[in-house]
Design a protein around this nucleic acid. Structure first.
Lengths: 199, 199, 199, 199
DNA sequence: GATGAATGAGATTTCATTCAT
DNA sequence: TATGAATGAAATCTCATTCAT
């Protein structure tokens, strides 16, 4: 009797996730309520439960989508580019892309094993992309060959994470200047020893 | 004839804050409930309100205490030391000191102006300490004199923040190795141009 | 496909208000609790908040309804009648109609501006009705033309208010006798000077 | 061991009652809390319970004191005066003397038998004073001898009660004018039939 | 698919009262 | 006498979730 249209279903799911995201950004993962999400998505609470089994599921799906999107963006940026320009590209995003959500996810990962797993799974993808880029750079002689690719990749990710707090800790900071400084640091770190010149 | 004993009062306050902190680490800033805090502190809910006017006040006092403590620790470490060894010292703390709380505070600062203010105020202290250390290093010739002290200080703080996520994103990461890599990066970044040798 | 049914909604609202009124009469405006109202209305506390945003809103709506009802009853009684018979009619209600609620409202109006406003707004309606009746009586020669209609109307309302305390101050008082005395007083007060005969 | 000084005790009790009264006027009988009373009286909650066994006892004692005071004032005013001037005197008090408390007491008397009893006991005193004054007036020929003294006394009390609502129902009312109108009404009501002239 | 009524547990906070000192 | 620590019940209100239609 139910003629279920999987396409429309998926569409609606995404609509709800979008609405949920706006609520989560505004009110926090715990602070946002199912009913606020329903209001934002203009559906009834009963209906929402046709698409998601619980609030936790919404949070999970939403974070998952965000992480996936970020990974995809990163992968696209990495295509045919070198490590440095990929990283530089990523850093311009710093103030957009709702760092709030990433911080929420990181805080939540401390307590929620599913959240931690989602975070770690996604991290793996970005990690191996970076490690590959580093390897290519080392082969091409543009990256210091003495650096361990895996540790360095992890480090680079953590630096991107850290860059999300710059604005929170000092809203008056000149973002462009800070970005440039970050780039300088990365260049100095990753360049082979022969590259004596400082940027 | 008995007058209120401010020492005991302060003691009890700290006891409650300690209990609260354990709850906040375990359940999150929003996830921890007043009654769980009361249970942890072994007092009645009514009594808690002799010491704090609201849950928000508890969160605020607790974060403030943590930030102050961190700043004090940092200041002590900086006494008579140079930038690099101060930073290296700070990084060993990485896995202790409840990074969970810092991440919670950062996430919360996105929405709560008082939290943002507390974070920014504390940041200023650490920032100027770092800037001073950088200046001294530049005067002594151990730090690249072309670096802007203020931007660099901000950047260093954000790198410390980012280091808090290393373990969350990859629990299998070798922390010692990662710490060494971080140190390498800092040395390469901060060293004057003449110091050609890589560590 | 089911849309919200405003009729049923309104019905339920009124049911809750009726239950609330019973509680308020029994326990007082402050003494009645949300949970007692829920018990009386046989709904859950959560559900009550689908219909009212706060306890204050319930109190307000309930008093408003009462005042409106009283005003409507008064207006109906005044239709085609003269002042005296209207007032006499109103006085027979004395012991019914829950004078308790009016006294609560009056006491509350001392502190609650919204309550004061509701009371004053409703008073205006009754006041102008009375003033009109007085004017007609003066034109017809049955009411002393030297009386100021507005002050007199206010006075008459306060006398009705005062009549609500008769039973409270002396439960053994013969209500019929008291009502007759009240009527006598009103006749003597309002009658034109030429009407020398006392009732 | 306890050398209890009954005079000081009584003094303190009265101080507390005065403080309590201010709180009750400000916040209502239910709205005022023990701790607000303690703050107002500048004593500790533990200490308060040396003087009163419960909040109810404070309310009771306070209302009792008020009623007694009102009765005493009334009695003093009645000394050697006639009904009308006594009533006129009483009416000038209208806006002072915290009508709030009387209205609270009346509302409370609907539910609290002790409060009802206190009210009725006090009423009896005023009632018989008024009845006496009326009797004297009738003997002297200044009061209509056909009026029942007891019913009339009750009626007069209720009119004084009602006058307490004048200002609440219409804050813009000219109090002097209203008082004059009230006096007119009383004169017309109480004067013997022969006194044809209207005031 | 879609609504909104309905639930009941639980959150924060207040308050009268008692207790130890 | 006097303090303020301490209690625990209860009050208001929120929220994730389920159900009937």
């Amino acid at each position: 009797m139910r003629k279920l249209d999987p396409v429309k279903h998926e569409e609606k799911r995404r609509e709800i996730l979008d609405a949920a995201e706006r609520c989560f950004v505004r009110d926090g993962l715990k602070g946002a309520s199912i009913s606020s999400i329903c209001a934002e998505a203009r559906i009834s609470p009963g209906h929402l439960y046709h698409y998601f089994t619980s609030k936790e599921a919404i949070v999970g799906a939403m974070i998952e989508a965000r992480l996936e999107e970020a990974a995809a963006r990163f992968a696209k940026r990495a295509e045919g580019a070198d490590v440095l320009s990929t990283l530089f590209g990523e850093m311009k995003v710093t103030r957009s892309g709702h760092p709030a959500l990433l911080l929420e996810a990181l805080a939540e990962a401390n307590r929620s094993p599913p959240m931690a797993k989602a975070l770690q799974d996604h991290t793996k993808g970005v990690h191996s992309l970076l490690a590959d880029l580093l390897e290519k750079g080392q082969a091409a002689g543009t990256i210091d060959p003495t650096l361990d690719r895996h540790v360095t990749a992890s480090l680079l990710i953590s630096i991107i994470d850290g860059s999300k707090t710059l604005y929170l800790r000092d809203p008056k900071l000149d973002v462009q200047e800070a970005t440039r400084a970050l780039q300088t640091m990365l260049v100095r770190y990753l360049a082979p020893a022969s590259d004596t010149q400082k940027v």
